[in-house]
Design a protein around this nucleic acid. Structure first.
Length: 853
RNA sequence: GCCCGCGUGGUGGAAUGGUAGACACAGGGGACUUAAAAUCCCCGGGCUUCGGCCAUGCCGGUUCGAGUCCGGCCGCGGGCACCA
């Protein structure tokens, strides 16, 4: 009898699938299609367990759907542009292109042994000129449709390295390499008009029935629709040209509680004032050191400076409010100016207490009604409160009612307008970097910004660049920028900004339907293959990637690259949990963190230390595996030791797919043992000719159909771990069964089929051992016979006052009165009743009985 | 700080508002063996006066019945627009 030998089995069946072209997707209008897509990986260098988990889940769905009769598309590609390639070039020399393609080759080589049912003929990388050339063509289409524009926007500027920094490169307000305090700098940049679609993107969320509610909630909050009042305070003593401050508020009902006006340090008025007033200049400069990230700004200590300017309250000429500059007011949201109502906003209250500004209660709770002290009074807007400063509604009213009344009042008196605003901002896609898709635009002195001619696409990235100094090599390239204007032919300059890599990942799903087309998409292929029926990826992409993709699909539709049905390109979304791991950190001589891979660290009783130097290592609790933190586990060793099926089985079995899983090597051994047991059992059954009793045969068949049912439900609902638990149980049943050889062979073949999506190589092997016809990968999914699922009797637990005390076994369809009778005869019930009658007797048919005494 | 999640034995986890701990891991005991490995079988939430009692992060609520629903805390994780 041969032993389970994955090293022999797995390559054999992978070759068989390849020769049979089992997973090559071909358009076939006569069959229903199913498009399974996992978020494609960034080619960081090695695959990690998160990838294995992600792609195995997708593979289970793809193989299952194929078995149930669908024509499946399951492609793979690479999200290949981005910062790490340039960082690698700066750190180690070499070219981002070589680094990227070599990583792709390595990772493809690591992925192929997993035996994924991927159509590799469709593989592409977003840095392939073929792909980004089509992206440039679409950019030009977007320009024509008015979906693109330029405006000034702030970036993090490193004044020493003279370069733009990503938010992640700003650490405590300093550049990660130079250590210099970061400044905000304005640059003219390219934007997509996603905010024009805010309402549509919000409303359409309701139609995404197969998306997780939490993702839709996050997107709703991100879009941030609000109703409020826009109005202006008139300035009493404004500088020349500034006689008013435009303000937006969602709480106009609290206008009588206003105690100050605060403007952003980036507000035009703040910029005028800083020219005259050194203190204000210092304050603003300090505020701008926070960089551009909202998180940084919100978490910083709330500070302000009194400008000395005063505004008039719109309701009262004689009521003057001070104007402050505050570091927490964002220029990007609303008008960049607010009024503060400390009684009903905690942040405003903290600010008022800090700077001795008045706190004016405008409403109090119906009961109690204490004036505000240290905690702002912020009840839900739907709660009725007692108003002390109502101006257009009754004394007792909800916030909602008061807001609407306040807006109507202000509109009627010409004070302001009710407006709807969205938090969602336009999508800035300019990056001052080399390794990205060049924006296909030429700047001409006579013609302005002119799109490149489509026949000149792709605008290729030049290969002859160096990364020996910071900044964008495209800017300093001697010749690349010099091109004739596509319109007038005069000497002109190319745009040197490249696109945000989120653009690349916003349409790759559509490109997979025909990756080699000479246009971005081909109508017949997108019509047939779109939409993605099941999209699978990390929850960390819940907002940006998914929202951008939803916008991009709409923009592609407007330009004729996608049909109307694809405006929402992902029919169903599943967000898997992350694979987490501890982080190992030391610090360099300047105190900056240095991260280490798990294999570089050894853990002893005295603590963790570096294997190479013995230097103590700080262990930070588990977090998402990320290349920057280096807390990644390499699955290659697991695959080499146990085989791909063990790795696949293990990542699916131990944890529910949507939950995070902390990687641990323990347990892989157990998974392997189980697969070896299945193999051994199959061999025994294949060689057996024992006769069994009809009762044992029947019992095994019932268990088999129950398992088919449960596993099918599990796979359909992403309950992979539960499905695997059922498979464990059925293996135990089968191993102990006294059924005859024929019944066991049938059960074993079925077990192989049910395991095939998870452990496809072993399943093929077992299938072959038991005389299964053809490839199991091509075999139809087993069907549970409903008649075999019905049980004749049920066990009813009996609760007394909600606690389980006993149970009775009754025929399935026993009438309620009869059940009640038998319950009352039960020993435990009689003891509890002590001769009395129950207060209440609840019978949930087929489930439970509760006796209330 | 703001938005969104999650929290169950020693461990990973199971449980349409209906028997809390399925299925595994680790552990304990046994069988087989000269022995070991491998394999197979059995036992494992805590306390108990053996009647029961206490247990799903903590505190309250709704319900005949709450891990599940509601409110408030605590802890952890994800996102916060230039990481992907």
């Amino acid at each position: 009898m041969s032993r389970y030998d994955p090293a022999a089995i797995e390559p054999k069946w992978q070759k068989a699938w390849e020769e049979a072209e089992t997973f090559i997707a071909r358009r076939d209008e006569s069959r229903p299609k199913y498009y399974v897509l996992e978020m494609f990986p960034y080619p960081s260098g090695r695959i990690h367990m998160g990838h294995v988990r992600n792609y195995t889940m997708g593979d289970v769905v793809a193989r299952y759907k194929k078995a149930t009769g669908f024509n499946v598309l399951h492609p793979m590609g690479w999200d290949a542009f981005g910062m790490p390639a340039e960082n690698a070039a700066m750190e180690r020399g070499g070219h981002p292109k070589d680094w990227t393609y070599s990583n792709i080759a390595t990772m493809r080589g690591q992925m192929k042994p997993l035996g994924l049912s991927i159509d590799w003929t469709r593989e592409f990388a977003t840095c392939d000129p073929d792909y980004y050339g089509q992206q440039q063509a679409m950019f030009i289409d977007f320009m024509e449709k008015g979906l693109v524009y330029r405006k000034a926007a702030v970036v993090n500027w490193d004044p020493v390295d003279m370069t733009v920094l990503a938010n992640e490169q700003v650490i405590d307000g300093k550049g990660w390499r130079s250590g210099a305090p970061v400044e905000r700098r304005e640059l003219t940049q390219w934007f997509f008009r996603i905010s024009d679609f805010a309402e549509e993107l919000l409303e359409a969320l309701d139609s995404l029935d197969n998306w997780p509610e939490k993702v839709k909630t996050m997107q709703r909050n991100w879009i941030g629709k609000s109703r409020g009042l826009q109005f202006a305070f008139s300035l009493v003593n404004g500088p020349h040209g500034h006689d008013r401050i435009e303000v937006y508020t969602t709480r106009p009902d609290t206008l009588m509680g206003a105690s100050f006006v605060a403007i952003s340090p980036d507000h035009p008025l703040a910029k005028v004032l800083e020219r005259e007033n050194p203190e204000i200049a210092t304050f603003n400069a300090e505020a701008r050191r926070l960089g551009t990230s909202e998180e940084e700004i919100e978490r910083a200590e709330k500070k302000g400076i009194d400008t000395g300017l005063r505004v008039r309250h719109p309701f009262d000429e004689n009521w003057e409010l001070p104007v402050w500059i505050a570091n927490f007011v964002l220029m990007d949201y609303g008008t960049g100016a607010i009024f503060g109502c400390p009684a009903h906003d905690q942040r405003d209250l903290d600010f008022a207490r800090k700077y001795g500004l008045p706190v004016i209660d405008t409403f109090v709770a119906l009961e109690g009604g204490e004036p505000v002290k240290d905690a702002a009074f912020v009840p839900p807007k739907t709660e009725k409160v007692r108003w002390l400063k109502n101006f257009a509604w009754p004394e007792i009213a909800t916030g909602e009612e008061a807001i609407e009344a306040a807006i109507r009042f202000c509109e009627k008196h010409g004070i302001g307008q009710g407006v709807t605003k969205y938090r969602l901002r336009d999508w800035g896609i300019s990056r001052q970097r080399y390794w990205g898709c060049p924006i296909p635009v030429v700047h001409c002195e006579a013609c302005g910004t002119v799109p490149e001619k489509k026949e000149n696409l792709p605008v290729l990235l030049p290969d002859d660049v160096t990364f020996d100094r910071p900044g964008n090599p495209l800017d300093r390239h001697p010749t690349w920028r010099d091109v004739p204007c596509p319109r007038c032919g005069a000497p002109a300059k190319r745009e040197t900004d490249t696109m945000d890599t989120f653009v690349d990942s916003s349409w790759y799903y559509a490109r997979f339907t025909n990756p080699w087309a000479k246009t971005p998409t081909v109508p017949e292929d997108v019509d047939y293959w779109m939409n993605v029926d099941q999209y699978i990826g990390g929850i960390e992409h819940a907002i940006l990637h998914l929202l951008y993709s939803r916008f991009f699909a709409r923009a592609m539709h407007i330009c004729g690259h996608l049909p109307a049905k694809s405006k929402e390109p992902f029919e169903a979304l599943f967000t898997q949990g992350m694979v987490t791991h501890e982080i190992y950190m030391t610090r360099d001589e300047r105190g900056r963190p240095v991260y280490h891979l798990p294999e570089e660290v050894e853990k002893t009783e005295a603590g963790a230390r570096l294997k190479a130097t013995g230097e103590p290592v700080e262990v930070i609790p588990s977090a998402k595996m990320s290349k920057s933190k280096k807390n990644v586990v390499d699955p290659e060793a697991i695959i080499a030791q146990y085989g791909a099926d063990t790795a696949r089985w293990f990542v699916l079995s131990d944890s529910p797919p949507e939950r995070d899983v902390e990687w641990t090597a323990a347990g892989a051994e157990a998974a392997h043992k189980h697969l070896a047991r299945v193999h051994r059992l199959a061999a025994e059954i294949a060689a057996s000719s024992e006769a069994g009793s009809p009762e044992a045969d029947e019992e095994l068949r019932r268990a088999m159909h129950r398992t088919i049912h449960d596993v099918t439900m599990g796979v359909e609902s992403f309950g992979f771990n539960a499905a695997i638990a059922r498979l464990y149980a059925f293996t135990n049943t089968l191993a102990r069964s006294k059924a005859g050889a024929e019944a066991k062979r049938e059960a074993m073949r079925t077990l192989a089929q049910l395991m095939a999506p998870m452990t496809p190589h072993l399943a093929e092997e077992v299938w072959q051992m038991l005389g299964g016809e053809g490839l199991i990968a091509e075999a139809p999914w087993p069907k549970a016979d409903p008649a075999m699922l019905v049980e004749d009797t049920v066990t009813l637990p009996i609760q007394i006052n909600g606690k389980r005390r006993s149970e009775i076994v009754v025929p399935k369809d026993l009438p309620r009165e009869e059940v009640e009778k038998r319950v009352l005869q039960d020993e435990a019930v009689q003891r509890a009743l002590q001769g009395g009658a129950p207060k209440k007797l609840i019978v949930v048919p087929g489930r439970i009985v509760n006796v209330v005494v």
